[in-house]
């Protein structure tokens, strides 16, 4: 009996302490990790979409809480107008979540571009979604009201050959982004005005 109590107590205490330490480390590194992700993963994608912006989109970002997740929005300024936002959404790919940075012009309600940020797809197959700019360039200038899907599903996007699941996942992520945009449009307009000044 005594043995039993000792086992339970030791395991409980050990797990709780481990949990506490991990929570502390997680909290302590969170802002540094975000900065690293901005530089190495999201940064290049944002720069590709919002190329030519007169302000730095990474510095001019704001956050909106949507449901229970906090989303970061990056603002681009073109011809003196802060009228373009970029943000990230995720789709289920072949090897896991695929992150897609999506840029939308809020005046014309059109997509300005999309770029894959993180993925775990097969090199040479699904990974071409990130490596081949021809695929994501198909999203440019699509109106936000359109449903986005691959041609096999009756849509307008030519899938990467041999990587239909990946292509679907990217379309799915873009579709999600368009829905979030439509849902949060008024809020986005408000926030973007603050950056524009």
């Amino acid at each position: 009996m005594n043995d039993m109590v000792k086992m339970v107590v030791v395991l409980t205490v050990l797990s709780s302490v481990a949990g506490g330490v991990l929570a502390a480390v997680n909290k302590g590194t969170a802002s540094q990790i975000e900065a690293q992700q901005l530089t190495f993963v999201k940064g290049p994608a944002i720069k590709a979409i919002l190329a030519g912006s007169s302000i730095d989109p990474i510095e001019n970002r704001f956050k909106i809480i949507d449901g229970d997740v906090e989303k970061s929005f990056f603002v681009g300024k073109f011809d003196g107008q802060a009228n373009t936002i970029a943000f990230e959404e995720f789709g289920k790919g072949f090897g896991g979540d695929i992150g897609v940075m999506v840029g939308i012009n809020i005046d014309s309600d059109k997509l300005v571009g999309a770029a894959v940020t993180v993925h775990t797809e097969t090199p040479g197959m699904g990974a071409r979604a990130k490596d081949d700019p021809g695929f994501v360039s198909q999203f440019i200038d699509l109106p936000v009201t359109d449903a986005v899907s691959v041609t096999k599903d009756g849509g307008q996007i030519n899938a990467i050959s041999g990587a239909t699941i990946t292509s679907r996942a990217v379309c799915d992520a873009v579709g999600k982004a368009l829905n979030s945009y439509k849902k949060m449009k008024s809020q986005l307009h408000e926030e973007i005005q603050k950056v524009g000044k």
Binding site: A18, V25, I33, Q36, V41
Partner: peptide, 18 residues
């Protein structure tokens, strides 16, 4: 114990050697 250290390493690597 091991899993805690691994998670710490993972977070530190994300923070400093991304």
């Amino acid at each position: 114990i091991i899993a805690s250290f691994v998670t710490i390493v993972e977070l530190l690597m994300q923070a400093y050697t991304y």
